[in-house]
Design a protein around this nucleic acid. Structure first.
Lengths: 111, 111
DNA sequence: TTAATACTTAGGCACATGACTAACCATGAA
DNA sequence: TTCATGGTTAGTCATGTGCCTAAGTATTAA
């Protein structure tokens, strides 16, 4: 598997969980500490920090220690990567529809 | 969990596998049968059809029987759904940057 | 009607994931 | 220095995922 493929795997699978999507959405509003981010979720802290680790491993967020807290923030570059992949598929799809249109048009003109 | 959340889970997790992303990319070029789609992959047919089921469950593709073959094709609506979610996050993110700019500008003006 | 083709079903196995408890370390406040 | 706060580490457990083999069904071709 290429490096790029592995990254896409991690990005999509990081986004496949509602807790993680929620945290990411929250972080788009501004940085936050572990316990701030955890507050809305009915989950023990160790379970929650696992989600943060998955997000960080995917590159969607990064963190650093600040005193005894850890501050998280989004890394929007990686979101663009996902958008890029989708964009590409859409282009292929739309090109194909265009070719199909041309084809149907040609058929029409012949008769 | 809301219905919409479950759908996003399924969409993102369907896209988190390179075989499935490959099949989807292939299907953007036009419809194909199970064995056509399977050909590029070094995998038994039952394993491969599992991937097709995941894609279909997510709504990214649909299929129907045609003689003894089954034809698959993309369902671009669901791709848009994923793009929609990403778009939304980006907007929140960009709004926040704008507010931050304003704030920094005001600080500058005060001094 | 027999045989080949195109899938499908059933069942099993290894490893990943997402949750938990219990106990631990590190920093800041009293 | 003692205690509370904010996170971390380690270990367990149930369930999900992705692969396999073996055997089945359904349709078409000979």
């Amino acid at each position: 598997m290429t490096n790029h493929e592995v990254e896409l795997n991690q990005l999509f699978s990081a986004l496949s969980d509602p807790t993680r999507r929620g945290v990411l959405a929250r972080l788009c509003e501004g940085p936050g500490t572990v316990s701030e981010l955890a507050r809305p979720y009915d989950m023990t802290l160790p379970s929650f920090t696992q989600h943060l680790k998955v997000l960080e491993r995917s590159g969607l967020v990064r963190s650093h220690k600040e005193g005894r807290s850890r501050l998280y923030q989004v890394e929007p570059e990686q979101l663009k990567r996902v958008e890029g992949w989708l964009e590409q598929q859409r282009q292929v799809w739309e090109q194909r529809l265009d070719r199909l249109d041309d084809y149907l048009l040609q058929m029409k003109e012949k008769h």
